[in-house]
Simulated scan of single mutants.
Amino acid sequence: MTGALSSWKDGPAKQAILDFVASATRAGPGFVPVTDRIAAFDNDGTLWVEQPVPPQFDFQFRKWAEEVRDDPSLAGRQPYKAVAEEDAAFFERAATQDPQVVAPLLEAFARSWAGMTPEEFEAQVRAWIATAKQPKLGRPYVQLVYLPMLELFDHLKANDFRVFVCSGGGRDFMRVFAEETWGLHRENVIGTASAFSYRDGRIIRTGDVVGGLDLGPGKPEHIFAQTGRLPVFAGGNADVDVEMLESATFALLIDHDDPQREFAYTKGAVKSLAKAAELGWTVVSMKNDWTTVFADQDGPP
């Protein structure tokens, strides 16, 4: 197939997207000025695989396992305790982005890399990208970005939307691969962020987190802080995306219902699916609306 959204099956979800973008870009009651055409998307589970845990946690767990080996006393506190004990329940709560679990994870993340320059941190992320693979699918994580969502990015950008990724994950982690993987500039990545300090001519990461977690209400708050506007188009897949989706004119919710090509689950998305039904959001069935999930992957029979 050719044309806009070529990996999307013809149907209500694809048509709703095309209709909204067409309405936003032509004279009429749905017109949106170019300056207001902000589109914001969650990352984990919206742009790439988030099971069995979001990929950034894979990166973090490897680092923390090394730290526990070097300092066994860390094993008594979270998240090091969960890593050392291979606590499946803790990991499950991380996979659903439970803020009570994500908070100590991200605080430890800020501490673990405090004192590094951005270049030193980026080198570690790139080493992880080059070696780590998703356990079920056996492919590097950056190859598990959803092709239909990249096509949506292209369609929005072709119609003068500015596209942002707004994730509870680490902003600087995502910025390492944003340009080559999503085709987005680094400054278009919004996420939970470490503070920086300028010392002796260098930018250095500190152990602080700026502006709180980018989850739940933090998402529209962070989007507004960075852009001065709320999104008119938003896409997510989980309960922690509800507030961002509510803030947008057009809301897109990804439903993971494809165990053959990816995963099937609703954990962490029950509230968002109910909100979608209540507010008329566009729900995308991964199984039924996408002919292809990942690049170089055949569609279903």
Rank of each mutant, 00 (worst) to 15 (best):
E246V: 02
S247K: 04
A248V: 06
A248D: 06
A248F: 04
A248K: 05
T249P: 01
F250K: 03
A251V: 02
A251R: 02
A251Y: 02
L252V: 09
L253T: 00
I254L: 15
I254Q: 12
I254E: 07
D255K: 11
D255S: 10
D255W: 06
H256E: 01
D257Q: 11
D257I: 07
P259N: 09
Q260I: 13
Q260K: 12
Q260R: 12
R261C: 04
R261T: 01
F263Q: 11
F263I: 14
F263W: 12
A264Q: 08
A264K: 14
A264L: 06
Y265S: 07
Y265I: 05
T266A: 00
K267V: 14
K267T: 15
K267F: 12
G268E: 11
A269M: 05
K271P: 00
K271Y: 00
K271C: 00
S272H: 00
S272F: 00
A274H: 07
A274D: 09
K275W: 03
K275Y: 02
A276C: 06
A276E: 03
A277L: 13
A277T: 14
L279D: 10
L279P: 02
G280L: 04
G280M: 08
T282K: 03
V283C: 06
V283E: 10
V283Q: 08
V284D: 11
S285T: 00
M286Q: 09
M286H: 04
K287Y: 09
K287C: 10
K287E: 12
K287D: 12
N288H: 15
N288D: 15
N288E: 15
D289S: 09
D289P: 07
D289I: 10
D289E: 11
D289F: 06
W290T: 01
T291Y: 00
V293T: 12
V293C: 12
F294T: 00
F294R: 09
F294G: 06
A295G: 08
A295D: 11
A295W: 07
A295M: 11
D296H: 15
Q297E: 15
Q297T: 10
Q297M: 14
D298F: 11
G299Q: 08
